[in-house]
């Protein structure tokens, strides 16, 4: 018995493509002042969001974004069959506490910064598999919580190298449905963990680029599509140099996507915002996809989009023990509805 909806090695196609019914995004001040500022639903100016800790602020952002997405879909939380969410903090606390407060059956996910795309792929499978009518997904990150967990306290005087990326403060929620109006998810390519020996916790782009290139290549091989099928191939948070690296690997392997290649991390900040190589974090691909990208698809500027969530599987513990930082990438095909 073969899996009916499996094509090639890593790709699945959806018989009744699940619909992206509604989205909502919340971002911090820096993201709000960036070039995509106008595409977000809510901008918070207080990094604590009136909470006692940054962790609580992050959790609150996720909860509000998810509630907003459900409202926009014209649903109530009772209609939601599954909630799929994750974040960067230890034991994915932002997602856990959000699930506690929303009281929806919950599957917690950790895919580092690829979490939103991992959730989209799994949510689409749950719906097309007949296990759910509505799936609520979300992801979040916060500059201050991520920095102090993974690197240095934010008030410590440390010069950031030029290839360092800036963790996006923000959260996004999305409602997937079996039917309805909106863009649809037609394919998902689940990536493998790829490790090419990167160890620098400041250079996330270099850790993730091989995984992104690997997943993109398998997607093309599995589907038999050529690069010109897509109006846009957009990665999650490779940043300026990670994007360049992924592009080089792809060209070396015969896939030239230069003309339609973008990266959420490069899009979210302007060069003068001192974010160096661009944005990163779960919220990076999440808010750009749920904000800018889907709005562009709905306006008709893009019809066939290949989105690739990219994650660096960094742990402060393994990093100190001299382990490499492997990468993961999941691709999802979004088509205009």
């Amino acid at each position: 018995m073969v899996a009916l909806k499996k094509i090639g090695a890593q790709t699945r196609w959806f018989q009744n493509p699940p619909v992206i019914l509604a989205c909502a995004t919340i971002v911090g001040e820096k993201e709000g002042m960036g070039p995509l500022g106008h595409t977000f639903d809510k901008i918070i100016t207080d990094s604590h969001y009136h909470e006692k800790s940054w962790e609580k602020a992050e959790q609150r952002m996720l909860q509000e974004a998810m509630q907003m997405a459900v409202e926009r879909a014209g649903l109530s939380l009772k209609d939601i069959d599954f909630m799929l969410a994750g974040d960067l903090l230890n034991q994915i606390i932002s997602a856990n506490y959000t699930a506690r407060n929303l009281e929806v059956p919950f599957i917690g996910l950790y895919g580092a910064c690829a979490t939103l795309y991992e959730s989209m792929a799994l949510g689409a499978m749950l719906i097309d598999g007949g296990f759910a009518e509505y799936v609520l997904i979300g992801a979040c990150s916060h500059y201050a919580t991520a920095e102090r967990q993974y690197r240095f306290p934010v008030e410590q005087g440390v010069q950031r190298p030029l290839y360092a990326q800036w963790t996006v403060t923000g959260a996004a929620g999305m409602v997937l449905a079996r039917q309805g109006p909106g863009p649809v998810i037609t394919h998902a390519t689940i990536g493998k963990v790829v490790d090419l020996g990167q160890q620098d916790p400041m250079n996330m782009g270099a850790a993730m680029a091989p995984a992104a290139a690997d997943t993109i290549m398998y997607h093309f091989v599995d589907t038999g599509r050529t690069t010109d099928y897509y109006d846009l191939v957009v990665t999650g948070d490779l940043g300026t140099y990670g994007k360049e690296l992924a592009q080089r690997i792809l060209i070396n392997n015969g896939y030239d996507i230069t003309s339609c290649f973008a990266d959420c991390g490069v899009l979210i900040y302007a060069p003068e915002q001192d974010a160096h190589a661009g944005g990163s974090g779960c919220a990076c691909s999440a808010v750009v996809t749920c904000g800018y990208l889907l709005q562009e698809i709905q306006k008709g500027h893009y019809r066939h989009v290949l989105g690739i969530g990219t994650g660096a599987l960094l742990s402060p513990c393994s990093s100190l023990q001299g382990e490499n930082i492997p990468g993961i990438a999941h691709a999802v095909v979004i088509e205009a509805g």
């Binding site: 190298p161 250079n203 080089r248």
Partner: peptide
């Protein structure tokens, strides 16, 4: 071999500190 090649590529693209 891929790791070695990739390390070279990373070093080539990585910006030098000012």
């Amino acid at each position: 071999i891929r790791k070695k090649q990739y390390k070279k590529l990373v070093d080539e693209i990585k910006p030098r500190p000012p």
